[in-house]
C-alpha cells in the first residue's frame, strides 16, 4: 500500500534542521533533523513524552526552537507566528479535538479561510459586491470540503453537537480549508475502532492524492502507522533514534527496545 520513497517528488515541503527545544532545564527535543518530501506520508512515533507534540508545535510556530531552523518550501519559518505559518499552508489537527464548538460546521471551515479572504470592515458592513462574491465562494468551498470528508449533512450544526467521528472529520475539513502543502495530524485515530482506523488509512491516501499535499502523522496505533506511512521517524526522550520505511522500523533493534519492548504484547503484534 505504501509507495516507495524513491519514486516520489524530489523537493521537500518541509525541512527541519537540528531542532532543539529546551524548557527550563528539560530538553524536550534534542537536535532532531527531519524532512517531509512533497506529497509524501510520513509518521512520527515514539513512546509518551518522547517529544512528538513538542516537535509538532515547533513546526506550526507555537514554540520557537531553542536552536535549529525550520524551512517550509523555500521559506525560513523559524520563529514566525502561527497564523502566518498557517496561512502559508501548514495545517494541523489536534490531539484533543479543538473545534470552535459554538460555530456551525460550515463556519468552522470558513474560519480557516480567513487568511485567503480579503474583505475588510467597510466592505463587510456595506456588503460590497466583491465581499458578497468572496463570501459566496468561501461558502461553496466549505461545502465542497465538508462533502470531501463526508459530513455535508452536518453543515448547519454546531460543531460541539457532532459525533466524535464527525468532529474528527470536521477538523480535517477545517485544516484543508487552509489549502495546505503539509497537513499535520496529531493522533487522528485516537478513539477509533479498527474498522474506522482502516477506513482512515484509505482516507489519508485519498487526501494526499486529491489535495496534493504531504501528510505528517503522530500516531500510537501501530497498525495504522505501518499501513499508512512511507517513512517513519522514531523519537525517544527527545532524540531521533531511527528513521526509515515501515519494514526497517519494524526490525530496528533500538526501536523495539525503546518503544515496543515496553509491552511484549504490542511488540509481537507488530
Amino acid at each position: 500500500m505504501s509507495a516507495d520513497l524513491g519514486t516520489g517528488p524530489v523537493s521537500n515541503a518541509l525541512t527541519a534542521d537540528n531542532i532543539s527545544v529546551v524548557f527550563g532545564g528539560l530538553v524536550a527535543v534534542n537536535d532532531v533533523s527531519f524532512t517531509i518530501p512533497d506529497q509524501s506520508i510520513v509518521s512520527l512515533i515514539g513512546p509518551n513524552g518522547a517529544g512528538k507534540t513538542t516537535f509538532f508545535n515547533v513546526l506550526t510556530g507555537l514554540y520557537t526552537p531553542t536552536s535549529g531552523d525550520v524551512r517550509f518550501g523555500d521559506r525560513d519559518i523559524t520563529g514566525q507566528p502561527p497564523h502566518k505559518i498557517a496561512s502559508w499552508g501548514m495545517a494541523r489537527t489536534f490531539q484533543n479535538i479543538r473545534l470552535f464548538g459554538l460555530m456551525t460546521a460550515e463556519e468552522n471551515v470558513m474560519v480557516a479561510m480567513h487568511s485567503h479572504m480579503r474583505a475588510g470592515i467597510f466592505s463587510t458592513v456595506f456588503g460590497l459586491p466583491k465581499q458578497r462574491r468572496e463570501e459566496k465562494e468561501a461558502r461553496e468551498v466549505a461545502v465542497d470540503l465538508l462533502d470531501f470528508v463526508g459530513i455535508n449533512h452536518t453543515r448547519g450544526e454546531y460543531a460541539r453537537n457532532l459525533s466524535y467521528g464527525d468532529q474528527r472529520r470536521l477538523e480535517v475539513a477545517r485544516a484543508l480549508a487552509l489549502k495546505p502543502r503539509v497537513l499535520l495530524l496529531d493522533e487522528p485515530t485516537a478513539g477509533m475502532n479498527p474498522q474506522e482506523s482502516a477506513r482512515f488509512v484509505e482516507f489519508v491516501h485519498r487526501v494526499r492524492t486529491e489535495k496534493k499535499l504531504a501528510v505528517l502523522l503522530i500516531e500510537h496505533d501501530m497498525s495504522v502507522v505501518m499501513r499508512v506511512s512511507e517513512r517513519i521517524t522514531v523519537l525517544d526522550r527527545g532524540e531521533k533514534i531511527a528513521e526509515g520505511g515501515p519494514a526497517d522500523i519494524k526490525s530496528n533493534q533500538r526501536v523495539i527496545e525503546a518503544y515496543l519492548g515496553k509491552s511484549g504484547a504490542e511488540a509481537s503484534e507488530v
Binding site: A86, R92, F94, V111
Partner: peptide, 8 residues
Amino acid sequence: AASMMGVP
C-alpha cells in the same frame, strides 16, 4: 486553534 487556522 484560531491562530493555528490562520487568524491573526
